[in-house]
């Protein structure tokens, strides 16, 4: 937290090193969120690119109300939301889910085998975007509901409802598949 404040201060003073440091620190989180929401690595990278360039472009004028991590992640989520619906893969074909990624890189625990991972992926993609977004921000990156609500200008009750409906739907979907 203090490190982030220091980095932002340095950024405002014109330090490009601070910008590099921020990128190295949060690039993985941003990509992971974009990937979880889009399920498309190329598109996820593009989103992170646009998001971070936009962040850098604000440079010295940057004013943060929340922590840097929340700000960057919600920026990614908002940018994805703003994408044209046509560009999003709303109807996910299970065959297109990147099982290859899972096979090669995800060190799954014993509880989750490849088959289960595919089913979770499928279930996640069937959730409405708003619910998927909240679940990813909360469970993957540990953002608090209050933070998300504040950054998205939505009431905390709405955020909690989306989360609860999302989890319920996942339960149903997983019960059917597992």
């Amino acid at each position: 937290m203090f490190e982030d404040k220091w980095l932002i201060w340095k950024l405002r003073q014109g330090s490009s090193d601070a910008l590099c440091h921020i990128y190295e620190k949060y690039k993985k989180n941003m990509l992971a969120l974009a990937h979880a929401l889009l399920n498309d690595k190329t598109l996820a990278e593009d989103i992170v690119h646009d998001c971070f360039v936009s962040f850098a472009g604000r440079g010295k004028t940057l004013e943060l109300k929340t922590c840097l991590k929340s700000y960057l992640l919600v920026s990614v989520a908002n940018r994805i939301k703003n994408l044209s619906r046509d560009n999003l893969k709303s109807d996910v074909d299970i065959d297109e889910i990147e099982i290859a990624d899972l096979n090669s890189a995800i060190p799954l625990s014993n509880a989750i085998n490849i088959e289960l991972a595919g089913k979770i992926d499928s279930a996640m993609q069937q959730l409405p975007y708003d619910q998927r977004e909240i679940i990813s921000l909360h469970l993957q990156h540990g953002l608090k509901f209050r933070e998300i609500a504040s950054l998205q200008n939505v009431s905390i009750n709405t955020i909690q409802s989306r989360y609860r409906y999302g989890i319920d739907k996942l339960r149903t979907l997983l019960d059917e598949k597992v």
């Binding site: 899972l102 995800i106 799954l108 989750i112 992926d121 679940i135 990813s136 469970l139 993957q140 989890i167």
Partner: peptide
Amino acid sequence: LIKEYLHAKKNAA
């Protein structure tokens, strides 16, 4: 389960 799955994806990013 979802948390573990998402963390695994995060590590793989």
